[in-house]
Amino acid sequence: MAPPKLRLATCSLAGCFGCHMSFLDMDEKLFELVERVEFDRSPFTDIKHCGPCDVGLVEGGVCNAENVHVLQEFRRNCRVLVAVGACAITGGIPALRNNVDLWDCFQEVYHYGVGVERGQIPNDPELPLPFDKVHPIYEVVRIDYFLPGCPPPAEAFFRLLSDLAAGRRPELPAGAIRYD
């Protein structure tokens, strides 16, 4: 009998979905993967909330309140939580805003930006409220494994999930660590 499939959730917080695109770059190996893995919440499934899972892959850093809620939902539901990509691990490109004052950010976006006329700062509760600074996800919840890269290559995703499905501790092969 085949071993039970690994239940997997993925999400992108303050990221560009580039890690997800890279995941898909494993091309025909995806067929091999779906033999071992089934998806819970993920852009691939359009499931909105995460149920109990074996593995959660989180792309992107934490830049606003909603990111925290999603991240905490993942942490509560995923046995193993993996930080995927430069943004989840260091804040990445979104963290470039960390040396800009938040007030200046708002001014630029809603008042003085190119093409903005009579702009005003929205106060709609539907809009996630931004933090003073963008943070990596390991500063908000406990993270079990890290998959660096911008994005991590498809092989790295495949290898990580294969290791986890086989009950092995995932190891990046020597020379496979890249931050860009």
Partner: peptide, 24 residues
């Protein structure tokens, strides 16, 4: 922030971190 840095790939801080296996 390596992805935005011109030195990425030629940076010794990054390269030493690779060698020492830094993932976070």
């Amino acid at each position: 922030i390596c992805p935005s840095c011109e030195k990425s790939g030629n940076c010794q801080l990054q390269a030493v971190a690779y060698r020492l296996g830094m993932t976070t």
